[in-house]
Design a protein around this nucleic acid. Structure first.
Lengths: 262, 262
DNA sequence: CAGGTTCTTGTCCTGTCAACACAAACTTGA
DNA sequence: TCAAGTTTGTGTTGACAGGACAAGAACCTG
């Protein structure tokens, strides 16, 4: 930041090239066993009627992160505070907005399972969409929001590997099955329940047992212990998604001889 | 990006809050077995005389990445193209510049070993500083550039673990020792030469042998094979820095009985 | 040629992890 | 009441990766 460019050397704001700074938020939540993203329908000029990320201009004395939270609440009916908010990246191609130069700082957030996902704000229409639908390009998105979402999805997927963020998708108390379900839904993969259980329970301060058990009135089966998130932010040795090839490993060779017991 | 905030609805740029967008670049290189950062001395009003990251305003029709490259070349005497340029994050606290609201998009770059590191630009004084000096806060830095550098250092250190970026610090052809030296310098750690050798040579397309050997006229020792970077961007199974505890492992117990052979 | 240095491969041993078996604890239906 | 089914949790095992060395390979200097 030299500020030593030659031509404009005064500090009159109007002497600087007019650039607008906005924030956009990619909000993830899991509803109905699907990873979903919160979008709003644009009512304004460019890309009118298309779906877009909630966002808007940064105010004069407002921090970027605060602007992201404000826009999330203003443009959607979300009242709950996100469980996680993190900067994703900044998108500033000169032609990304036809009106003027707009530089957007994108954030991504995790919202715990919300009961009433929909419900438009003032005049805006907000809704949740499964990421698979967005990835299939089944949705008309405004600006470069498709690219932003794609990068956000990749970020959340990779962050589950080495952080404890998955617990933020769950209610305050949850079972290990619920946590595993988060991984399976976000990664779209199957995970061995036994190994997953060992992994997360031995990871230093990932989970803390509350002492409670679920009562399995619902689906039957042994009651599960309930846990709340621990203090650890990172997992000592990462959970790998889709070993893909590392260990396809043929199934254990059948015992040479049936134990002569039937 | 709803652009649906209520008050300013016209598109007159002056109606928007005046925000300046700048880019800063944290440039890493290795000189004299030290990880170094390129800084310039400020000649202008705020923080005059302090050291700062090269950077400046983004022009009207200029992409962010292009602005970062331009400022790097304008404000320092660096003519070589960086071997890697990547966005680090955006810093926009309202009070980070006393003059006006400035939002900075920070980038970080890798420069291969440059022979003539110094040489000021037009009027700017540019110089390389070891990161250890910056980390020791032995330098007066402008604005929040200390924080930006700290995050950039952490980023480059962690990226060496799972990407092949380390090769970008090396000349086009290099030996495995040189590559290992990069890791040791960036991580400030000692690495076992034998295991490192196996690791990088077996990692799918990390390195490609050129067929050449070094002639060891200099320091003696067996000539080393030379390599050039492969196409792979990521390392299949990461190189871990500072195993810290996993296997301190007492040294192998001395052989019970000398093999009775001397 | 002895001794030193660097590069490279080999060996051993331990910890980790996927695959699987199975026990534990509950529900439902016969 | 008990068998069958379902979910939770623990045990076991074999493959694999990686750290600690050892040692061989290929060069230098004196």
């Amino acid at each position: 930041m030299g500020y030593d460019t030659k031509p404009p050397d005064g500090y009159d704001p109007r002497a600087y090239p007019p650039v607008a700074v906005t924030v956009d938020v990619v909000t993830f939540t899991i509803v109905a066993d699907n990873l979903q993203i919160l979008l709003i329908r644009r009512g304004q000029a460019p890309h009118r009627g298309r779906w877009a990320l909630p966002g808007g201009f940064v105010r004069q004395n407002e921090d970027l992160e605060a602007a992201a939270l404000r826009e999330l609440h203003e443009e959607t009916a979300v009242t709950a505070e996100p469980r996680h908010l993190e900067q994703l990246g900044t998108y500033g191609r000169p032609d990304r907005d036809p009106r003027m130069r707009v530089v957007t700082v994108a954030y991504w957030a995790i919202l715990a399972n919300l009961p009433e996902p929909k419900g438009g704000g003032d005049a805006a229409e907000a809704s949740l969409f499964p990421v698979v639908m967005v990835e299939a390009q089944a949705l008309k998105l405004a600006f470069d929001h498709g690219k932003i979402i794609k990068e956000a999805v990749e970020r959340v997927r990779s962050k589950l590997e080495y952080t404890t963020l998955a617990a933020q998708f769950c209610p305050p108390e949850f079972t290990i099955s619920q946590l595993r379900r988060v991984y399976e839904v976000v990664w779209n993969a199957r995970i061995d329940p036994a190994n997953f259980h060992r992994k997360v329970t031995t990871s230093p301060d990932f989970l803390r047992s509350t002492g409670d058990l679920t009562d399995p009135r619902a689906r039957g089966g042994r009651p599960a212990r309930m846990y709340s998130p621990g203090e650890a932010e990172y997992i000592s040795s990462p959970i790998m998604r889709s070993p893909s090839s590392p260990t396809p490993r043929r199934r254990r060779p059948p015992p040479k001889e049936p134990p002569a017991d039937r």
